[in-house]
Design a protein around this nucleic acid. Structure first.
Lengths: 194, 194
DNA sequence: TTTGTGTTTAACAAAAATGTTAAACATAAT
DNA sequence: ATTATGTTTAACATTTTTGTTAAACACAAA
């Protein structure tokens, strides 16, 4: 008999991702995750052997998902302008679903000092060149292309991380926040691509 | 005899702040902090009774420090343009020293759902009006003033949080990163205040 | 010097979180 | 229906982290 696949393994991973990346509960324990998934805590050990392995796998998959999205846009056969527009659309939709995913990955990166594969760096270098070309053409404001990328990601990611605080500070509800975030797509494009 | 003040209490708090806000070690234990401070772990209990109380106090002080800076700028007797410039200068200097402080406070806010005092909200409302006025004058691009503030803070805070990752992705060292961050001050101003 | 009090330490205790095991359970194949 | 094997559970064990206590220490005042 191969495997019965009750879906439990996937359920556990999905629940962990929800708790970490959507709800932002950085200090969740294995018990927290088991409870949220509605399964016995022992099952985390059965499927993943240890807490560390589960968490590592979750981060690994998160990185892979994010990389896949970035790569598909970086290397797409599109005008630069359209790439940016698509990037904003896809990234913001993802960020609305998993506001803390990037932060979690960044923190894990700080903690473990993982190495970035040369292949990925090359793709980025290539995109930095594209940015530079667009600046030469006078389409976007001239600056260090790395600053350009930092600006773009900052504008996209940050407001979602600070979701809760912003809602309190500005007295806005979920519906209005959603509206603001959708408006941001266009707004970011205009700021970046003047 | 009142108190001998060996400076230990302050040392512990400062060390905790360094570990959390500068080094970004979100999961630091009391032992980690004691070791980093070079004191016996029991002293954390002697001075603060419990881990939770220490951590809460550290966050409380962080919020107070950040609030004080914001308030002083919000209510300063300055032209709007100069306020923004000063905001960028001070915030960026702070963020370079404590890149993860804001994030930590935001995460704690998510966790505890603290209430924002009405007085603080009023100061923000006041500043939002100032932003609006500046937009009416045609000095800055028209948009929801809340978006304006989100943009500003995003551009300032985010690249410092992602410090480590950026250095890897773009192959830059500490010195160059510092230079990039200093350049950002002017760059952010130009993006915001076109 | 002695005494009193605040500070520091080490040993111990308790609590929280994680890991292991064996038995119960469920289901596909025989 | 029985068997074999993957899945789930509960009880237990271990490890990690936090909290408590009493004694040692240090230093100013008497």
């Amino acid at each position: 008999m191969a495997t019965r696949d009750t879906g439990t393994e996937q359920l556990i991973k999905d629940t962990a991702k929800r708790i970490f990346f959507s709800e932002g509960k950085l200090h969740a324990t294995t018990q927290d995750i088991a409870d949220a998934a509605g399964v016995n805590r022992t099952l985390l050990n059965y499927y993943f052997r240890s807490r560390d392995i589960l968490f590592e796998q979750v981060v690994l998959e998160a990185r892979a998902e994010m990389s896949a999205i970035m790569d598909s846009i970086f290397t797409a056969e599109l005008e630069f302008k359209d790439k940016i527009q698509q990037m904003i659309n896809i990234f913001m939709e993802q960020a609305m679903q998993f506001p803390y995913r990037e932060m979690y990955v960044v923190m894990e990166f700080n903690r473990t000092e993982k190495i970035v594969p040369e292949e990925k760096k090359n793709k980025i270098r290539q995109f930095l060149k594209e940015i530079n070309a667009e600046m030469e053409k006078g389409k976007i404001k001239k600056m260090d292309p790395r600053q350009f990328l930092m600006n773009l990601f900052a504008l996209m990611a940050y407001p979602l991380i600070t979701n809760c605080l912003n809602k309190s500070l500005y007295n806005i509800n979920d519906a209005e926040y959603l509206k603001l975030m959708k408006e941001r797509k266009q707004l970011i494009f205009e700021m970046i691509y003047q």
